[in-house]
Amino acid sequence: MTEQSDEGLTIREVRLGATREEGGTREVSYVIGGERDLPFSGDGAGRPLVALEICDDPRFWPPVVRDYVGDLANDTAEWARAAERTYGADLVRLNFTSTKQRGFDAFDAIAATTEEVLAATARPLIVEGSNEPELDSEVFRRCGEAGEGERLLLGTAEADRYRSVAAAALAYGHAVIAQSPIDVNLAKQLNILLRETGVPQDRIVIDPYAGALGYGFEYSYSVMERIRLAALSGDADLAMPMICAPTDTLSVREVREAAPADQEAMAVAWEFYTAYAAIVAGASIVCVRHPLTVERLKAALEG
């Protein structure tokens, strides 16, 4: 059902993670959404969440991060633990880069890694499954099953491959990241598709796709603003919290070609400006890959 009102809408609240009382094992769960106005204006939401993104196959990860985390990159669970305890991330986003290998069929490892990371962390978990329609169904089923009851945020659904993610989310009680390519209409369309598939609207988080700063980020920024404005003026199909994961940020020329001494600073600055701008545009969760960016963002969001 579509819900509209002249007064404007409140952004839907989406719960991430489940505590023991809620049927999971997390020490905390988060509720995102709930805004009634533009970011930093008026009352409403709590502080945006900062997620540190890690992966299960570091060959596909930016060198500047691999250099910083060192051996952690080879132990996904430890990396996850450090993300929360050492680097201070509000939550972890686990990216199954291993599925990018040709002929991938290690589905058992997907389940196992999901379980290990859940055991190593105490906070809600975002899981980024496969990016390959042929693998989707099995990958999402396995990580969905492994995290049953934990209210994972499962990504990502796209307009031409949303059924597998949706099925896993429905079967095991997770929330879904709905990603569309930088377009307010396409974002809305995907939300409608998910709704008509049976995914409850309080389990959808919009990812409008974020380009890197200097490489089209302005499109993402404006689409986020448009999504939020449409939602606040009554469009229930866009009234979901947003997540911003500018995954290309650390691959841009400015970071790659920076003098070795500046590279880390450049990586963090690039991630920081992108993520902070996304928050100003309305993102409830920002995902970064460099541990130092987490700290910078959290400091900026205090007070």
Partner: peptide, 20 residues
């Protein structure tokens, strides 16, 4: 400003003031 901040800030300003 340190050079990283300067470059990121100028880039953000260029992005935001690009005609959409």
């Amino acid at each position: 400003l340190a050079s990283a901040s300067r470059e990121a800030a100028l880039t953000l300003r260029q992005n935001i003031y690009t005609d959409p």
